[in-house]
Design a protein around this nucleic acid. Sequence first.
DNA 1: CGATAAAATGAGTCATGACTCAGGTTTCAG
DNA 2: CTGAAACCTGAGTCATGACTCATTTTATCG
Lengths: 174, 174
Amino acid sequence: MTPRADAERNRAAILAAATEAFAEHGPAATTEKVAIRAGVAVGTVFRHFPTKDALLVAIMKESLHGLSRRAAESTLFDFIAAVVDEAVRTRTVVTALAAPTLDVGDALRSLTDEIERLLTKARDAGEVRSDVRVDEVMALLTAAAQAAQQGGWSEDLRRRTLAVIFRGLAPWGS
Amino acid sequence: MTPRADAERNRAAILAAATEAFAEHGPAATTEKVAIRAGVAVGTVFRHFPTKDALLVAIMKESLHGLSRRAAESTLFDFIAAVVDEAVRTRTVVTALAAPTLDVGDALRSLTDEIERLLTKARDAGEVRSDVRVDEVMALLTAAAQAAQQGGWSEDLRRRTLAVIFRGLAPWGS
DNA sequence: CGATAAAATGAGTCATGACTCAGGTTTCAG
DNA sequence: CTGAAACCTGAGTCATGACTCATTTTATCG
């Protein structure tokens, strides 16, 4: 049986509201605020998502899938720069990349796979040293995104810092 | 007038307890827990530090000064590695390096100065490119420490990730 | 149209954790 | 020794925020 029309409408509104709220305030965003933003009562939010974390996880998965999609049509360095840029704008990316306790299913795994593909491509193109593994790349990506966000890195600092990282990934003399 | 003997004793106990508690749980450590650990009542903690943040700031300053001291007798790369190692063990370092809202006075400034000295020395020794500024170094240090801690980087991952960063800081072909 | 089940509402419950303060205890100067 | 000032105590206050549920509203089906 398909859900009632208003239920579906509200669920969508809640997801949209939560996306904005978590982007602005991170996991600290109140369920109450999400409800208000969605034009709905708190109870309704909890009807659709049994737990605040469940809602958060839903948003995080969306965010991670979005990244995977973008990774598919990008290059390694461009992708990393794009993620760090977005991290400065919305808190969700970092929350998703660096939430050790919340279970995002295989969304992170998928993203890692996608990045591995970018890494292989970059390696084959001679843009990255052959001994660099995905681990480091994920670690560096997460680190940069997280620090950039919460340190409020200026665009200039972002550029210079990423330059160091990119140089570190590149083969000698390239 | 010098404070009463018991007051001084308690203050020291509170600082010691807070150091441990914040190292283990970060800023999330409860004032209550600190009090228990210090063998003292909550009220006593608040008598010595008007606010939980005041206590936290005191610990953070201590931590930053400790880092400055260690920086004075180290080299840039060794120092960075040491800080990241410590970050994995105690949460205080990262809290101190990456707490944008808490006012640590000039403790961060001092550390930055010390690191600048290390940077200059490394540059003169030809170990670091001449166009690298302290900003990037601080940014990379903070990023690595933060991510290492909260991602639980293994020693191996730590080593490989720092290798990338160090290579990025180094001049070509060194 | 009703009837009814699904959904929404929002005031209320509960847990947590920072902070207070009236009353008891300890230190120490004289 | 002794009394006042300085300290300490810990139950209680207050704010916050997740989550509940009795009651009311609404979508949908015959």
